[in-house]
């Protein structure tokens, strides 16, 4: 009997969990996860759990350089207004993380089991790809999935594999978010990855809603203080994700 796994399962049983996933790295998943969580936290208390144990981008996005407090009830969150943030980076500090395969699952299980999450709404920033962390996540939770991708040919090929895999697990994503799909300029709209038809066709093939997000270069200025960002990307996500909930 694995008490930590049981604890993780019971902790999240009655909560609404949104998992932000991506088939490959570098598509803006952590930024999207953070903005979704920030949007949701404007309406109700929300938890954001960073399970990307190697990247730990969440803490860098929010400019958090502290360690988690650990209480009788488990790992206590970093608080940013109405948002409670948990990350393995808050345990290891500024140290790289090296984990052989099955230990990845154990670490994810421990973080989910020991994070003292009180909020009913939880956003999880998952690691890219289809590794052990994703298997662990599906052991513990039944999340609503938002799959982030770039609308590039390479990304879409890998996303298709991920969709096949998720469907095999019985998990159908709620939405595909095609990040950096276009850039609005004074000279009109630019499509850095070309036509958006392929990503829309992929959505049709799997019967999943696709939303194409615009690229906002100003977001770079908010790395380390993403909680202060109120630009178009956050607005778009609010429109797609909250108003239609």
């Amino acid at each position: 009997m694995n008490p930590i796994l049981e604890m993780a399962k019971s902790r999240f049983k009655a909560k609404k969990v949104i998992a932000v996933m991506s088939a490959k790295g570098g598509v803006g998943k952590s930024t999207i996860a953070s903005l979704i969580a920030l949007n949701l936290s404007e309406r109700q208390k929300t938890a954001l759990i960073d399970l990307d144990i190697y990247g730990n981008s969440t803490l860098k996005l929010f400019g958090i350089n502290k360690l988690h407090e650990v209480s009788k009830e488990g790992i206590e969150p970093f608080l940013v207004s109405n948002l409670s943030i948990y990350s393995i980076g808050g345990l290891v500090g500024d140290h790289y993380v090296v984990l052989p395969g099955k230990d990845e699952g154990n670490v994810v299980e421990s973080l989910l089991g020991l994070a003292n999450v009180k909020e009913d709404l939880v956003v999880i920033d998952t690691p890219p790809g289809m590794g052990e962390e994703l298997l662990t996540l599906s052991r513990v939770l039944d999340p609503e999935i938002y799959l982030v991708t770039l609308p590039s040919k390479l990304s879409l090929k890998i996303v298709k594999h991920m969709l096949d895999y998720l469907f095999d697990l019985g998990l159908k994503p709620k939405m595909i978010l095609a990040n950096m799909s276009f850039l609005n300029t004074t000279n009109g709209r630019i499509y850095p990855f070309g036509e958006l038809e392929p990503v829309k066709e992929l959505g049709e093939e799997f019967d999943i809603r696709v939303e194409c997000l615009q690229f906002d270069p100003s977001i770079e200025e908010f790395v380390g203080r993403i909680q202060d960002y109120n630009g178009v990307l956050k607005e778009e996500l609010a429109r797609f994700l909250i108003c239609k909930e």
């Binding site: 393995i88 345990l91 140290h95 090296v98 984990l99 154990n106 670490v107 421990s110």
Partner: peptide
């Protein structure tokens, strides 16, 4: 102490 599975990191 909190997550012993992190041993390979340290």
């Amino acid at each position: 102490h909190v997550v012993p599975a992190l041993i390979t990191t340290f």
